[in-house]
Design a protein around this nucleic acid. Structure first.
Lengths: 265, 265
DNA sequence: GATTGTGAAAGTATTCACAGCT
DNA sequence: AGCTGTGAATACTTTCACAATC
């Protein structure tokens, strides 16, 4: 789903479904939390609850990785953390460059979840000469002119684009020409890339529009039920309750060229 | 997919698939660009290319909305813009609050794609008293104490959580208690919400992990083919080429409780 | 007795391919 | 002749439900 690549014809078991891959990071986060609390084992039921999925799905997902559980007991937390990390490729160091150091780029540079997952911000790059040398999150910003050199010297294969939409395609081309083969795009554009390069996009605007769609539905249903809906006052229930049945990851680059998030269109 | 709501048993045509809903914003963006260039009509082929999907999928998607095209001709751009906007609920005003005004919150507040899509930042809210009154993107930051009042006074039904993970659940509960029924969560936590409340999440960390997974695969394939892979120097092709087969939207909250994006875990 | 791992069933989504309209 | 709209075919995902195992 996420790319132009078809992922191996799979002679044998090597065919983890995309939907499963997209959930592995969720499981990993939940497991990491358990690990920090020194919990030795979890059942599929408990872990599923912590990750916000149902247990059958979780077991099926894990079954693609191998048989890492013990019947009647559950899963060993540390062991699973290791196996999932390995499967995701997080046991190695991934140098990442962030291009575009506006508010969003700065937010990403400051993101703490990086280092703990094997990602390292190798460089921050911005087109504004005034930013050059200024440290953001302890990392000095470098000028776009240095892009190719940085990518090659650091062996960067993952690039993050947090520029305005107008600059994104050009930045993308330079990244790819320099050797980057995976791109996370926050700019609201569909990027064209050569075969073999993966692109994922994050788009705030799209998320909000999807929420608006469902919000509208709710209002319609209430109205149809004969209720007057006074804007936001229609909610009555207690603030906390069951876990939402399914919080989808705003992550899947399902279709092509999603609307990215944080810059002016 | 994105929520705990099941979307209407659908007596008649009223059952637009989630996958289609998630793509409507893409089409809308592409159509808006065409509209700005005063292009009167598009074929499914052209529009699909601009949105980064294939044309059969696009036609199928549109078929759920109705028959808005003309055989032998294509689709009227303005008319489609209107129909999709209406379907997504963008013809009305959606006041939104952003809770947590760090780099990410500021980036969101500055996002230009808001107003043009019917979204209006009704308030910025932060727990830090030092921020209170300071304008961000022209909007004065208000203290968390005001949250309930703001939501009720402005009739806010959509809330954006851009706080650190530790604060997210509590903020969520207060938003929901005050009347918010849709939440876009950027904090890396699974939120528990009552039935009837939609949650979508955006998570940078998850996106990077999925890219790492595929990146690892590529490296493995090259290695298997007997090639030595010198870090990032393995790319040879031209920088631009065909559009990536499918850039999935990092948007779908597909599974439950995805990992959000931009704060320290 | 508890809990995994997994075939088989059910539900969704995508793609094909062409009849039908302009 | 060109292009949409859509049934039918295919592919993927989730859920069920239970035999296998500890």
């Amino acid at each position: 789903m996420a790319t132009g690549r078809t992922h191996r014809p799979a002679t044998r078991s090597r065919g983890i479904p995309e939907a499963t891959v997209a959930r592995l990071p969720l499981y990993l986060r939940a497991l990491t939390a358990l690990s920090e609390r020194s919990v030795p084992t979890v059942s599929s039921e408990e872990l599923a609850a912590a990750a916000g999925v149902n247990s059958a799905k979780l077991r099926k997902d894990f079954s693609y990785l191998g048989s890492y559980g013990t019947r009647g007991v559950g899963y060993d937390v540390e062991y699973l953390v290791y196996q999932i990390s390995r499967e995701l490729g997080l046991t190695q160091d991934w140098p990442v460059v962030i291009v575009g150091v506006g508010n969003l780029g700065a937010a990403l540079a400051n993101y703490g979840g990086f280092a703990s997952r094997g990602f390292r911000v190798a460089a921050l790059i911005d087109a504004d000469p005034a930013m050059a040398g200024k440290p953001v999150a302890g990392i000095p910003v470098q000028h776009t002119d240095e892009l190719e050199k940085i990518v090659q010297d650091e062996g960067v294969s993952i690039g993050v684009i947090a520029t305005p939409a107008g600059a994104a395609q050009q930045v993308c081309e330079r990244l790819v020409a320099a050797g980057v083969t995976s791109i996370l795009n926050f700019a609201p554009t569909v990027l064209s890339v050569p075969d073999g390069v993966d692109v994922r996009k994050v788009d705030l605007s799209i998320e909000l529009q999807i929420l608006a769609f469902h919000e509208q539905r709710k209002a319609g249903e209430l109205a149809a039920a004969g209720t007057v809906v006074p804007a936001a006052a229609s909610h009555q229930g207690p603030a906390v309750a069951r876990r939402a049945a399914d919080q989808e990851p705003v992550t899947d680059q399902g279709p092509d060229g999603d609307v990215p998030a944080v810059m002016p269109t």
